[in-house]
């Protein structure tokens, strides 16, 4: 019987890292979009309510 591979070394194979990096960048882009929206709110709030 051939043992199934498991553990960190399977998860950290070099070919997987471009995918992982893409995932991190997607997360960062989503967060920065929310941040930009909040900045827009502040600009409008100062213009309208202050």
């Amino acid at each position: 019987m051939v043992p199934r591979e498991s553990g960190f070394h399977v998860l950290t194979r070099p070919e997987k890292w471009p995918q992982y990096l893409g995932g991190m960048l997607t997360e960062t882009a989503f967060i920065l979009a929310l941040t930009a929206l909040a900045f827009g709110m502040a600009v409008i709030a100062i213009a309208v309510w202050r």
Binding site: T35, A38, F39, I46, W49, R50
Partner: peptide
């Protein structure tokens, strides 16, 4: 929170308001 703090005039400009509130 942005509305409340802008209305109260706590922070002087949009950047400060954004930085503190968000």
């Amino acid at each position: 929170a942005t509305y409340a703090l802008a209305k109260a005039g706590v922070y002087p400009d949009a950047m400060t308001l954004f930085r503190k509130v968000f």
